[in-house]
Amino acid sequence: MTRTLDLPQLETERLILRAPGVADTAPMLGFLASERAEFYGGPMNAYDGWHKFSAYAGQWLLRGYGMFSVALKTTDQCIGMAGPFHPDHFHEPEMSWLLTDAEFEGKGYAAEACLAVLDHLFTSHGWSSVVSYIDRANTASRKLAERLGACHEARAEDVVPNCDSYRHFPAGGGA
């Protein structure tokens, strides 16, 4: 008997946000092995990538929230992840996002996914705010945080080197 764990699923105009699945392993390990993973502890080998990706999945069971796989509605192809992950040494869960390949950039997918996740956290979970730590060299992520209406708070050197903290609030969620 296989036990099915029902995790929440979110839907936007073009995307399905669902529980990370084993089928997402290949695109995620590809991402984590690439230069694109520079701000995610990468590039890393497949063993470490598996460790990280499966931890993203497993946190759901322990914390009751976590990273969603972001898939295109048309193909169910995993193009990235978005959601809160809480590494051991962080004071609070961090809202993070990624797109696995450059071909998915510039289409507004990350913003679309993040807005759905933020709305879920503020509405269904009742969170009053959530933080994102963004490397000062990560221009794309900083711009997205600003587009999402996040407030630039402060340097976050005590949490992650070279990072600033951006805080998302319910009121700014739809900006």
């Binding site: 008997m1 296989t2 036990r3 764990l5 995790l7 529980a19 990370p20 699945g21 084993v22 598996w50 460790h51 990280k52 499966s54 931890a55 993203y56 999945a57 497993g58 946190q59 759901w60 069971l61 322990l62 590494p87 051991d88 040494h89």
Partner: peptide, 22 residues
């Protein structure tokens, strides 16, 4: 590190999502 331990603990839990065992 303790952070490695956290990733490992989460990975062990992920099996319940993916393989019905963990």
């Amino acid at each position: 590190t303790r952070h490695d331990a956290w990733l490992d603990f989460c990975e062990m839990a992920a099996g319940w999502l993916w393989r019905g065992a963990g």
